[in-house]
Nucleic acid binder design. Structure first.
Length: 346
DNA sequence: CAACCGTGGAC
DNA sequence: TGTCCAAGGTT
């Protein structure tokens, strides 16, 4: 590498002209941004697209404008608002972090102190420190990994290449405007230096890119082969009365931990018996793909005539499918016509 | 360190 | 339809 600072300057100049306007973002040169909004957006954006996050971010900041408001919220309410966004440990950690920061009185302003908070790891701690506190920390997410792997033509496959990429990224990080620079790198990766068909022709640092000069930009970064996903099978039980539906809160840890759900069996280690004695009818089959396995879930539906042995009856006026994770929304969509055919008003 | 942990959109 | 992927963290 000849002159890292020249590359950083080119990226900042590009960002000044092409920065995307986002709900959580402060325009170039107008930072630093509000730590609460930076933190909330960064957690939501973990492994999640900008398009998916926008409405959730607006909803959360409308409901809870300050971190103290979020800290005071009930866990079930926050989980319901997070429903559909995925990776629910983020929501559980979000609440714990909000309460910790509230107790402290303010967000810590160093990367090391931020990294001690729940749900804040190497990436997010660096991002908050740079964007909200103007600290020259090196922010390395998937975008930065890709940009750096191409700039320096790193042939090592991920995740083994991570330390090497972090070291190279560190050499580029400027002392001035680290927050804008971090967002510039991520914007570049999101809009120009994309995984497939990178737009090298309009890239502000194409003259500095080794991969491009070697004609291998689109092939980098290389990745280790991934393992196949096994297929699991199970059953979900949607029981209802004229006034209520049978639900439960899933265990606090593990898959869909802490979310509102219909009782299910046979696929996640839970009990095999139906949650209530009833005339169960098959309503359909849900196919769902999780991170590390696929699931065929048989949806059973029934009007309940006796008290359930599992879960709780939630009054319909307190129930909304919006509060369910995606898998359970799919199941509800199939069972709902069954309920209606039974004379219910669902 | 590898497994675990969601979801929806793009191609 | 299948595959890849998105501003990762925790254990």
């Amino acid at each position: 590498m000849r002159d890292p600072q020249v590359i950083a300057e080119k990226l900042l100049a590009w960002y000044d002209r092409h920065a995307r306007a986002l709900p959580w973002r402060v325009p170039p040169g107008q930072g630093p941004a509000d730590p609460y909004r930076v933190w909330l957006s960064e957690v939501m954006l973990q492994q999640t697209t900008v398009a998916a996050v926008k409405s959730y971010f607006l909803r959360f900041t409308d409901l809870w404008p300050r971190i103290e408001d979020l800290a005071a919220a009930e866990q079930a309410r926050v989980m319901a608002e997070w429903a559909g966004l995925g990776y629910y440990a983020r929501a559980r950690n979000l609440i714990a972090c909000a309460r910790a920061v509230s107790a402290l009185g303010a967000f810590p302003d160093t990367r090391a102190a931020l990294a001690e908070l729940p749900g804040i790891g190497p990436y997010t701690s660096a991002a908050i420190a740079a964007i909200a506190f103007d600290r020259p920390e090196t922010v390395v997410d998937g975008n930065v990994e890709r940009v750096v792997a191409r700039l320096f033509a790193v042939p090592t496959p991920l995740p083994a290449a991570k330390p090497e990429l972090v070291a190279l990224a560190g050499r580029l990080t400027p002392q001035d405007r680290p927050g804008d620079y971090a967002q510039a790198m991520m914007d570049l990766g999101a809009t120009i230096c994309t995984p497939r068909n990178p737009a090298c022709g309009i890239c502000p640092v194409n003259d500095d890119c080794l991969a491009r000069s070697q004609g291998i930009a689109a092939e980098l970064p290389r990745k280790s082969p991934k393992k196949p996903k096994p297929l699991r099978q199970g059953t979900v039980w949607i029981g209802w009365t004229d006034e209520a539906v049978l639900v439960e809160t899933r265990p606090a840890r593990g898959l869909l931990g802490g979310t509102l759900a219909f009782p299910s069996t046979g696929w996640d280690g839970s009990d095999l018996a139906p949650p209530a004695h009833a005339d169960w009818q098959k309503a359909g089959l849900v196919r769902h793909v999780f991170t590390h396995f696929a699931l065929d879930l048989t949806v059973m539906s029934a009007r309940l005539d006796s008290p359930p042995g599992r879960g709780r009856l939630l009054p319909l006026r307190d129930f909304s499918a919006d509060a369910l994770p995606g898998l359970m929304r799919k199941a509800w969509a199939l069972a709902r016509p069954q309920a209606r055919a039974g004379g219910d008003e669902l």
